[in-house]
Structures are given as C-alpha cells and as structure tokens.
C-alpha cells in the first residue's frame, strides 16, 4: 500500500482530495455475480483509483449446528471496492461494487440504505445470481437498472428474452454494458438516473 505520505500518516494522494466545498454525498451500489465486472465498472468511471473498504460480518451458525441446537457465530471480513465521481463542487457520487459472495450484500448495514439506486450487472452465464438479487432489491424498494454484460463466448439472448427469464417488469431499463468502457458505464449510470427521474416525477404527479 502506498497510501502513507512521507510523514507516515495515511491519507489520500493530493490529486484525490475533495474540495472543501464538498457538502454531501450520494451513493449507487453495483451488484452482480462473481467476476461479472463490478470492480471494472467502478474503476472505469471513478476519478480516484478505486479503494477498498471492509466490514466485519457476524453470521449465525449454519443449518447443521441449528439442528444440533448449538448456536455459534462466525465472523468474516468482507471487502468492497468503491470509487468516486465529483458531480459538482458540492455534490459527490460514490459507487460501491459489491464483493462476489452475494450472501453478504444485504448483511452490510447501511449499504443499500439511502442509496439512490443500484445497477445489476447481469452475467448471462450465471443468471440465477442476478435473479436472487433482483428479488431482494425489489423487496427492499431499491430502484435498479440492469446492465447486460457481454462477455466473449457468453450466451447471447435478445433483451426481451432476458427480461422474461428474469421476470423483470417492463418499466425496468435494460442496457448493454461493457464494464471496461467508460462511456458504456456512464450510459448505464445515466439510465439509472433517468429511471429514478421518471419514478420521481410519476410519483409526484400521482400525489
């Protein structure tokens, strides 16, 4: 790690410093199956070299122990990559790329709370992961768009077929997303913002 400055204190590199005028932040969470490109997406649009934050998760024991009536807890450290985009002098957007182990996503307190929304990166080779997470996002009322990541050799399906397979509402935007391409990632984030915009204006009108 090269975060330590010359006097031995950790901290951001001078080019990674936010202006003093930064007043408030918002966040977006990137979810999706193992190796689908979450970290790559964060890196493609982040103004800072992506950083890693971690959290200690406590999980109750697994089924076998429950049957035996023994309660035990396991502690696991889960790491998450994140990046940053300064929207203007006051407002900062943080992007969090969830780790591969999906069972931890919803245990991370405060990850989805207050988030503007989520991007689900859909791995057409492992759709069941996304199917699960979409259900959990819907349950929690976290708005999301789906970025379909086209890996070479991955099965290709028409969007409409993917929509049906994922049981996705007609209103949820689906967009092709190459996580390595900054413009493609920007468009995916933009699709999320536009979607939020329509949700907001629709709910205002119906009041």
């Amino acid at each position: 790690m090269d975060y330590k400055s010359s006097d031995g204190y950790a901290g951001p590199r001078s080019e990674d410093i936010l202006p003093a005028s930064a007043t408030a932040a918002v966040k977006v969470v990137i979810v999706g199956g193992f190796g689908v490109g979450k970290t790559t997406l964060v890196g493609s649009v982040s103004e800072i070299r992506p950083l890693t934050t971690e959290e200690t998760m406590t999980q109750a024991g697994v089924g076998v122990d429950d049957l035996a009536g023994i309660e035990h807890k396991t502690e696991t450290t889960v790491a998450m990559d994140f990046g940053r985009i300064s929207i203007n002098e006051q407002l900062v957007l943080y992007l969090f790329g969830t780790p591969g182990q999906e069972r931890f996503w919803f245990l991370w307190n405060g990850l989805f709370e207050g988030a503007l929304g989520a991007v689900v990166l859909l791995d057409t080779r492992r759709m069941e992961v996304s199917y699960d997470v979409i259900g959990r996002l819907e349950e929690r009322g976290v708005p999301f768009v789906v970025g379909v990541n086209a890996f070479p050799g991955a099965p290709r399906y028409p969007m409409s077929e993917l929509r049906t397979a994922m049981d996705l509402d007609e209103s949820v935007p689906m967009i092709d997303c190459d996580a390595r391409d900054r413009a493609s990632c920007r468009d995916t984030l933009m699709a999320l913002m536009r979607y939020l915009y329509t949700l907001t204006t629709v709910s205002t009108e119906s009041q």
Partner: peptide
C-alpha cells in the same frame, strides 16, 4: 430522490 438532485447528477455524469 429529489428531481433537482437527479438533474445535478445527470449533468455531472
């Protein structure tokens, strides 16, 4: 989220 907040984010993106 607020409409103006979203507009600010879209402008930034």
């Amino acid at each position: 989220p607020d409409v103006q907040l979203l507009e600010a984010v879209m402008n930034g993106l």
